[in-house]
Measured scan of single mutants.
Amino acid sequence: QGDIVVALYPYDGIHPDDLSFKKGEKMKVLEEHGEWWKAKSLLTKKEGFIPSNYVAKLN
């Protein structure tokens, strides 16, 4: 089961498979690959890669 993270900063995706998000948006982490994680937005239901240093895990 994936962790839920919250965006600390907004992110505008650079690549087509990036997931753009707004500050405060919550996402479910699907896979962790070093600095880039695959996640699904709980708001938009879209999936893509996010920079892990832009988010914090919720406990």
Rank of each mutant, 00 (worst) to 15 (best):
G13P: 07
K38M: 12
K57L: 11
S20P: 09
A56H: 09
A39M: 05
A39I: 07
K38A: 05
K23A: 11
L58V: 13
V55H: 01
E32N: 12
F49M: 15
K28Q: 15
K40G: 04
G48W: 01
L30C: 06
N53F: 09
L42T: 05
S20T: 10
G48E: 00
I50W: 01
H15E: 07
A39T: 05
E25C: 04
E25L: 01
L8F: 04
K46T: 06
P51S: 03
L30Q: 05
V55P: 02
G48A: 02
V29M: 06
I4R: 03
V5P: 00
M27A: 00
V29E: 00
A39D: 01
A56L: 12
L30T: 06
D12R: 14
M27I: 05
D12T: 15
K28M: 15
E31D: 08
E25K: 00
S41E: 03
G48C: 02
K28I: 15
V6I: 14
E25N: 02
D18Y: 14
P10H: 12
H33K: 11
G34P: 05
L8D: 01
L8I: 09
K26E: 07
M27F: 13
L8E: 03
E31C: 12
Y54C: 09
H33T: 09
K40M: 14
A56C: 14
S20V: 07
P51A: 02
S52I: 10
K45A: 14
D3V: 15
S20N: 06
F49H: 06
A7D: 01
V29N: 00
D18E: 15
Y9I: 08
I50N: 01
P51L: 05
I50H: 00
D18H: 15
E25I: 00
I14F: 09
K26S: 07
S20H: 07
D17V: 06
K22T: 09
E32K: 15
Y9M: 11
K22V: 14
Y54M: 09
H33C: 14
G2M: 11
V5Y: 13
W36N: 07
D12C: 12
D12A: 13
N53Y: 10
K22Y: 06
W36E: 04
I50T: 01
D3E: 13
Y11H: 05
K26C: 13
Q1Y: 13
V5I: 07
K22M: 11
I4T: 08
V6A: 04
N59W: 10
Y54F: 11
I14T: 12
K23N: 04
G2N: 11
I4P: 02
S52Y: 08
V29P: 02
N53C: 13
L8M: 08
V5T: 02
K28R: 14
V5W: 14
P16H: 09
G34I: 04
Y11A: 02
